[in-house]
C-alpha cells in the first residue's frame, strides 16, 4: 500500500509517496538523503537513529514514515545554520566529545531535546537523557561534559540577551 505523506523536515514541507512498511529512518536516509541518522540496531536499543518528531526524541527505526504524516521532524542536518553550528554541536567539538562519530548525530539530537525541555539539567538528568544512546568509543564522560557546557552556554546567551533588551 502506498501513502501520500506531507512531512515538515528540518523546517521544509516535503511531500512524498511511501509504502506502508517504509520506516521513518529509511525515508530520511534513502528518500531524502539525510544520512545523519544512522541505523545501529534496527530495534530501538542503540539510539543512533534518534531524530526529533514534534520536538521529542524518538528512534526513527521504530516509526513508520506514514506515521510521520503531518509531523515536524528535525534531524542533525537541521541544526545550526549556514553561519555556524548549534551550541550543542559546538560543545561536542570543543570537548572532543566524539570518536568514531557514528552515535553522535543521535546523541546530539537527544541532547538537543533535553536542553529545550530542561535548560539547566543536572549531570544525572543528562545521563538519563542519553542512556538510550549507546556509544562504544568515548566512555560517555566527555559527552556529558559537552552537554553540560552547551546548557551553560545557552543560559549565558539567554541572560545576555535579556540584559541587552
Amino acid at each position: 500500500m502506498i501513502h501520500n505523506i506531507r512531512v515538515k523536515v528540518n523546517g521544509e514541507w516535503v511531500e512524498a509517496c511511501v509504502p506502508s512498511h517504509r520506516r521513518l529512518l529509511d525515508f530520511l536516509r534513502e528518500d531524502l538523503d539525510l544520512i545523519g541518522a544512522k541505523e545501529g540496531c534496527g530495534g530501538g536499543e542503540c539510539g543512533a537513529c534518534t531524530v526529533l518528531v514534534n520536538g521529542e526524541p524518538i528512534n526513527a527505526c521504530l516509526m513508520l514514515a506514514v506515521e510521520a504524516d503531518g509531523a515536524d521532524v528535525l534531524t542533525v542536518e537541521g541544526l545550526g545554520d549556514a553561519d555556524g553550528l548549534d551550541p550543542v554541536q559546538e560543545a561536542f567539538v570543543e570537548n572532543s566529545a566524539l570518536q568514531c562519530g557514528y552515535c553522535i548525530p543521535g546523541m546530539i539530537m537527544s541532547a538537543k531535546a533535553l536542553l529545550v525541555r530542561n535548560p539547566s539539567p543536572t549531570r544525572e538528568e543528562v545521563v538519563e537523557a542519553i542512556s538510550g544512546n549507546l556509544c562504544r568509543c568515548t566512555g560517555y564522560a566527555r559527552i556529558v561534559d559537552a552537554i553540560m557546557q552547551a546548557a551553560e552556554a545557552a543560559r549565558a546567551a539567554e541572560s545576555s540577551k535579556v540584559g541587552g533588551e
Binding site: G47, V53, P57, N59, L114, S131
Partner: peptide, 9 residues
C-alpha cells in the same frame, strides 16, 4: 521502561 526515545512512543 526503555529509554527516553522509547518512552516517547
Amino acid at each position: 521502561v526503555g529509554s527516553v526515545q522509547i518512552r516517547n512512543r
